[in-house]
Design a protein around this nucleic acid. Structure first.
Length: 422
RNA sequence: GGAGGGGUGGCCGAGUGGUUGAAGGCGACGGUCUUGAAAACCGUUGAAUGAAAGUUCCGCAGGUUCGAAUCCUGUCCCCUCCGCCA
């Protein structure tokens, strides 16, 4: 959620900043509701103050065993009036927060202008796309030929957009999870293994709800949602808490989780292979930082994600998203894109974002600089480190050989009984 | 799933309708004392909003009442016992 104080004081500036997103934001409703709410709230407080005074007076009379019946009758009227205003305030509050919760975060000033993906900026490129002296295969062909990816049977048991990993394929997936977690924990991230289902409040805290309900799987028979990313449970670890030791910041955590996405609205996109699935594995990095550190923390978080690709020797580039392509909660985002030979394109394998205080305000994540200090909102950040399935795609396609086998990146071999090829 | 108990400030823990945002203790912070420390003593010590006065918050949401941390209902969470189960 936006800082409503900032919103009130620097309305024009906020509107201008949000305009860079090229999305319609209904400010007028919000302004109108806010004005009414404040007026009624102030009225209500005045009435309550009066009532509190009268109530104390009745208390005194009762204690002194004097007659309070006259005062009580007067109070009854006041109390009835309060009920009316209270109900109205409650209604306005609900409508106001409904309007406020669907307003996206303000893009960071450093974020480039632009409307869509086409306007994103490449900030650096690492490694060289491989040159093949044979016709390279797609990961689907390779996976099926090697017997490690089984789409047909996955469709039989579950449906479209699922895959069954088998044998060394399953082992490769598991190895990548272990490898990535080992790298990140060695780099100072705490490993956590969270629930894969969370409640509505958590989803609202990180910004998936209320606006993006249609992207999520809701569990029948309970008020749970399957997580679309580990960002949700991990960021919410400190929800409604005040971190009272500033030394703990930045909090750095990493987690492996499966991710579940409806992929509604993505019909026809990436229908072949494991690029876009309803369920995929991911290792996620999450940081909670002091506001003044979040810019630098985003850089280092992105570098941490990149380090995985470097160790695996996979060619990639880093792209800075333009304002129009930013996610709802993000203030600034770097996408890391890995080279996919069959598509002759770089494809997203990680998305690293700073959410400034947007998620922290919704989720109630704060810290104190010292014992006496006022609590302040932390800045939250996260990024994939990395998406496992897409890493498998990149490995299969980039390290394939003329005979259809695939060379396993050196750092993974010890996770796979020193195997060198798939 | 059945039966019972419980959720109060950083922590422990009083509080069953009337100056209780909340006793007491612990912890923390500041001070006195001390060469320094400990002990002792004194003081301070939750959050939101507001310029302030003030208002709100005793898991959450409703209700009863002139008035609720205290009574009632629902709900969430925790604990104990039984059942079931990886």
């Amino acid at each position: 959620m936006l800082d409503l104080k900032l919103f009130r004081k620097e309305r024009e500036k906020v509107i201008k900043a949000l305009a860079r997103r090229h999305v319609d934001v209904d400010f007028n409703t919000l302004f109108a509701l806010e004005e009414r709410l404040r007026a009624e709230l102030s009225e209500l407080e005045k009435m309550r103050r009066e009532m509190n005074g009268a109530s104390a007076e009745i208390g005194r009379l009762v204690r002194e065993k004097k007659d309070a019946s006259y005062a009580k009758v007067a109070m009854k009227q006041l109390s009835t009036n309060i009920d009316v205003v209270e109900a109205s305030v409650k209604d306005f509050k609900a409508r106001f927060s409904e309007a406020a919760l669907v307003i996206p975060n303000i893009p960071d000033e450093s974020v480039p202008d632009g409307e869509s993906e086409a306007d994103n900026k490449v900030v650096r490129t690492w490694g060289e796309p491989p040159v093949f002296d044979f016709e390279p295969k797609t990961h689907v062909e390779l996976g099926e030929t090697l017997g490690i990816l089984d789409f047909k049977r996955a469709a039989k048991m579950s449906g479209a957009r699922f895959v069954l990993y088998r044998g060394t394929g399953a082992r490769l997936e598991r190895s990548l999870i272990s490898f990535m977690l080992n790298v990140h924990t060695a780099g100072g991230y705490e490993e956590v293994l969270p629930p894969f289902m969370v409640n509505r409040k958590s989803m609202t805290g990180t910004g998936q709800l209320p606006k993006f309900e249609e992207d999520l799987f809701k569990v029948e028979g309970g008020d749970y949602y399957l997580i679309p990313t580990a960002e949700v449970p991990i960021t919410n670890i400190y929800a409604d808490e005040i971190i009272d030791d500033v030394q703990k910041l930045p909090v750095r955590m990493c987690a492996y989780t499966p991710c579940f996405r409806r992929e509604a609205g993505s019909y026809g996109k990436d229908t072949a292979g494991i690029i876009r699935q309803h369920q995929f594995n991911k290792v996620e990095l999450v940081k909670l930082a002091k506001p003044e550190d979040s810019t630098a923390e985003l850089e280092s978080l992105t570098a941490d994600a990149e380090s995985i690709l470097q160790k695996l020797d996979l060619p990639y580039r880093v792209v800075e998203l333009c304002a129009g392509d930013l996610g709802f909660a993000a203030a600034k985002t770097y996408d890391i894109e890995v080279w996919i030979p069959s598509q002759k394109k770089y494809r997203e394998i990680s998305s690293c974002s700073s959410f400034t205080d947007f998620q922290a305000r919704r989720a109630g994540i704060r810290f104190k600089r010292d014992k006496k200090a006022k609590p302040e909102l932390v800045h939250t950040l996260n990024g994939s480190g990395l998406a496992i399935g897409r890493t498998v795609v990149a490995i299969l396609e980039n390290f394939q050989r003329a005979d259809g086998s695939v060379s396993i990146p050196e750092p993974l071999r010890r996770y796979m009984n020193d195997r060198e090829f798939l």
